[in-house]
Write a protein that binds this DNA or RNA. Structure first.
Lengths: 245, 245
DNA sequence: GGGGAGAGATGCCGC
DNA sequence: GCGGCATTTCTCCCC
């Protein structure tokens, strides 16, 4: 099969909105929000049924170039090369793939209507705190969850045992400087909008960086070490089983 | 070919550190930083030569499940299904793919030593300002670029025509609240570390959200509309050409 | 559609 | 390795 045969295969597969996977030696040019060029090498290219384009090098997690769903693709043969021109008119972006040689090609109509179910997110964490407020401290009473303010969403808002309004910002991982400035923004906003001068701020996270800790204390806020629910649970069980056998 | 044949193919390809692509009907379970389950459907699976695993549904930009480079993979046949067990001991994460049926399979040794060249980043933007300081305002003199502070990197620092220290924070897109808090953090830090009371703060970005603008003004900072270099340039040229023909 | 923030974010660079 | 942060971030949710 030569490149012209592959051009026909590709066009047909695109028209049938199949999911296409091929591998080739190519160069890639991207222009849009930024610009990039990738010189000759072997890559895996995927065109999905919604028009998304992914170009993967043989190593690394992320695609080296990509286009979002809704991209249209055209093919031409030019100077003995197969050129894939992908254009997203709405995003004002384009990718040109210049293909020297095809290593393999496949296209299939894939059926998949499933949605993924994920647990252990920041939402799960604020749920947990809302239902078990003593995790924050004795006498803490949540008042609202996911409170909407013009300056952002507040994960958990409540009152402590002395009746002082308390804002809790959850982080799944180690809290950093940005978490502290985020909390500060909420606290300041709430003080102004409610016309009160005393509002407590608490960061709930597994841990916190030293700089963030210092900034937190400088501004009179507090840190409470809390892990997101189910974190590592299944893995630890598996490891235990592996140790036994 | 039955699933046992595919198991052999997969094992061999993994041992030879080839880049593997196959499509199958499967279920996927993930456990690690969070947990997830994806019920039966058709997906494209890629295993790269560095151990990275990507599982793609027929639509959407991002992989629905993935493992980072350095993951090890084992295969077993169980209850008439082919089970791919991917484990990353360092990240304490695992994925189990239970395969009902293979649609296609391919593995290749891919050669790619190229690094991508990207332009139009935030770095390019601060470079541009450093070299053309009048873009900020008349008389602005950059003093340092990428200044390191314990509270973060300052994109451009300089003095205005009156000799007042001025900090510029660049954003490639519309600047949001977090950009303002970031700038505020730098300004406060510099005031303390240099023992001065007057420091100007400027956000340089194509645009700024209304809330961010208000917060910026509340704190006495300024906004300067600047586009990252070469942004849309090639696309606009192309469009012009299209209009002509 | 704009704005704000999480993500199993990822990846890079500097200390 | 930790920390801070940009990313062609992407995605979701809510106003």
């Amino acid at each position: 099969m030569d490149l012209e045969d592959y051009a026909v295969l590709l066009k047909d597969a695109i028209n049938r909105t199949e999911t296409i996977v091929f591998s080739c030696r190519c160069q890639v040019r991207y222009s849009g929000r930024a610009e990039s060029y990738l010189d000759t090498g072997d890559r895996v290219v995927m065109i999905k049924s919604d028009g998304a384009l992914l170009i993967h090098q043989p190593t690394g997690n992320a695609p080296i170039n990509y286009m979002k769903p809704g991209t249209s693709h055209t093919l031409i043969i030019n100077s003995g090369k197969l050129k894939l021109k992908s254009n997203n008119i709405h995003q004002k972006e384009s990718i040109d793939v210049s293909i020297d040689k095809m290593h393999f090609f496949n296209s299939h109509k894939l059926e998949d209507a499933q949605n993924i179910i994920v647990s252990g997110t920041e939402d799960d964490m604020s749920d947990m705190i809302y239902r078990n407020p003593a995790m924050i401290e004795d006498g803490f009473k949540p008042v609202s969850q996911e409170e909407q303010t013009k300056y952002g969403f507040i994960d958990v808002m409540g009152v402590d045992k002395k009746g002082v309004l308390t804002i809790v910002e959850c982080k799944r991982y180690c809290a950093e400087l940005s978490a502290v400035t985020q909390l500060r923004r909420y606290v300041e906003k709430i003080m102004v909008s409610k016309g009160i001068t005393k509002v407590r701020g608490i960061i709930a996270a597994p841990k916190i960086t030293e700089n963030a800790k210092k900034m937190l204390e400088d501004w009179g806020f507090e840190f409470k070490s809390i892990n997101p629910p189910k974190y590592f649970e299944e893995y630890d069980k598996k490891q235990a089983r592996l140790d036994v056998f």
